[in-house]
């Protein structure tokens, strides 16, 4: 670009389509969601008549806004949220997925990428295989895992002589169901991470390795003192984005257990996640979006906090 020029109106023209759409579908939702979490008892209705009919004759006074009604401004939603045992369950489940499956996946992916980088035969072939999960459909995959761990007919039970032990069918315990979710998350998450790590590894100048070779550096020390530090920006990027994505876990659970179910038959809320909890509000009578939005806001704050912590930690460990 030419430095002196001011492209104000031209830029406005170019950005107009994007920004207009984003105003409606991105910025507004953020603001709206934030507001809704502070509107006590906010319930949404599809049309005016519904609003009128549903809430006629109830003592409390309501204010109408944005197609729904609420009773006051405050943190009532948050209180309801944290009193709801389903939400607490969701927090616990989500925490498990985030803090256990993500680090595991990152480490496994890193080892695979380093391994792939060092072998010469069939590297392209293996690369293709490891990337396959990236193009799978979450629901279809959920169905596959569902059948893999089926109590009577699944491969896992047949292979390890465990027929009758329920992983995802009725009677499954929390531990076993969570295990299935772990394996699913790891399987699904490897592809992206491996590719990013591999490209980062290939960008490391070979001369560093040659210099280390001349100095008779043992393999593990090459890995810890050279490869990992030089790869640390990638590792940070992957860790941050993976954590962010893991907090949003939802489709995988639905895929494994079915629409609206987060657990086996008979215990459908077993593995409910934060996002799942929020979406559940759609099904409740009167659509209490206030609570759901509060849940979203809480989730956002958690993500923000964890990301900031990571950035802080990265100052010491990441070398550019």
């Amino acid at each position: 670009m030419l430095e002196y020029k001011k492209d104000g109106w031209k830029a406005a023209l170019c950005l107009a389509p994007s920004l207009l759409l984003m105003c409606v579908f991105t910025f507004w939702p953020i603001i709206n969601s934030f507001i809704m979490s502070f509107l006590n008892n906010y319930h949404f209705a599809l049309n005016r008549e519904d609003v009128y009919n549903t809430f006629m004759g109830v003592e409390k006074s309501y204010t109408y806004i944005m197609g729904g009604r609420f009773t006051g401004i405050g943190i009532q939603n948050f209180i309801t949220l944290f009193r709801d045992k389903d939400f607490l369950m969701a927090l616990k489940n989500t925490a498990f997925i985030v803090f256990i499956s993500v680090p595991a996946t990152v480490i496994i992916a890193l080892l695979i990428a380093v391994g792939l980088n060092s072998i010469k035969a069939f590297r392209g072939f293996f690369q293709t295989i490891f990337f396959l999960p990236y193009v799978t459909n979450t629901i279809a995959l959920g169905l596959v895992f569902n059948s893999l761990f089926h109590v009577d007919y699944g491969l896992v039970n047949k292979l390890f002589n465990l027929v009758g032990t329920s992983w995802i069918n009725s009677g499954a315990t929390w531990g076993r169901a969570m295990f299935v979710l772990f394996i699913y998350s790891i399987w699904d998450g490897l592809a992206f991470k491996i590719i990013v790590f591999l490209s980062g590894l290939q960008n490391i100048d070979k001369q560093y390795y040659q210099a280390a070779q001349i100095d008779a550096t043992p393999r593990w020390r090459v890995f810890t003192r050279i490869t990992v530090p030089l790869l640390s920006p990638m590792i940070l990027y992957i860790t941050i984005t993976s954590f962010m994505g893991a907090f949003k876990v939802y489709s995988s659970v639905i895929g494994i257990f079915g629409t609206g179910r987060y657990g086996p038959v008979g215990n459908e809320k077993l593995l409910i996640t934060i996002v799942g909890y929020v979406y559940e509000q759609f099904g409740v009578q009167g659509m209490p979006f206030g609570v759901g939005s509060a849940g979203s806001t809480v989730l956002f704050l958690i993500i923000l906090l964890i990301t900031l912590v990571q950035m802080q930690v990265s100052k010491k460990w990441v070398h550019y």
Partner: peptide
């Protein structure tokens, strides 16, 4: 905005 969880958008866009 990429950091914002998706259901924030879903709910309001639905509305």
């Amino acid at each position: 905005t990429m950091m914002i969880p998706g259901e924030v958008f879903v709910i309001t866009n639905y509305m």
